[in-house]
Amino acid sequence: MSILNKVLKLFFAFLFICLMSFTVIRLIPGDPVTNLIGERGASPERIEEMRKNLGMDKSIPEQFFIFTKNALQGDFGESIVSKQPITSEFKVLWPATFELALFAIIWSGIIGIVLGILAAVKRNSFWDYGAVSLSTIGFAMPIFWWALLVIFFFAVMLGLFPVSGRVGVEFEIPYHTGFYLIDSLFAEDKAAFFSVIKHMVLPAFVLGTVSLALIVRVTRSAFIDIQKEDYIRTARAKGLQPAQVIFKHIFKNALPQILTALGLAFGQLLTGAIMTETIFSWPGLGRWIIKSIEARDYPAVQAGVFYSMLIIIIVNFCTDELIKIVNPKLRGS
């Protein structure tokens, strides 16, 4: 696939999410302009002004064009509740979610892959049964209950970690990147840095369990399949060390599947983040989306639809590319 093709594909994906978020606001019963303004302070003059600004007096295709143009510039209007431009809110929010999701995927990825390999290599052993039951229960576990249990044991009973929040309230971390771990280092505030880590542990643990189940399952089944392949048997027969076989041959061939699973898991994490962030009062995208829905903050909901789709498309795109890099056979297919 040529570069041009990729760009085209991304462009269409972008148009698609614009179309979706553009439609969403028009599906809500009532006048879209009033919905966008909300109840607060909507004098007739202001409504007219908004209607003009949003181009609502124009035809639908024209409106869509204006919306797409604004979206390209990252302009989604003002939040009804906070009266701040949504983009400026998003700038602070996404690093919070990303930081959390990143840590979740790192720990669950490492442990999931190791467990999956162990289970596949030592089939029908304790490890295998353990890994299979773990992933089965993990799939069925409602994350919000899991979060409550984790909070109960580690925060309430043992008092090891804070119940909620992203950093102790006494710290004020100046904004550089929005990633608190990095920003607290920028500020050379050691206490703040450790406070950030301490706040991260429980939510990242809870969030990671969602993806753990998936990664264990996929790694295990990919390994089992590849172990059966002829070339692995040949490699074994040739007398290669088991470890060598596992890492050189099987792992390499299982990697595309595992990467796909990681990509999928990242999408899942976005859903998981909604619950996790709400329970842990983590000031990220997920909690923001819930709050906006509760507040009927339609411009924010609209932007929420847009941004969450954008993230998923970007993640999917990146995993596709990564898979092609690790497995040249798939190129062009």
Partner: peptide
């Protein structure tokens, strides 16, 4: 295109 819970949420929101 959206994860299922997120979509369900948006539908309820609408």
């Amino acid at each position: 295109a959206l994860p299922s819970l997120l979509l369900a949420l948006f539908v309820v929101a609408i």
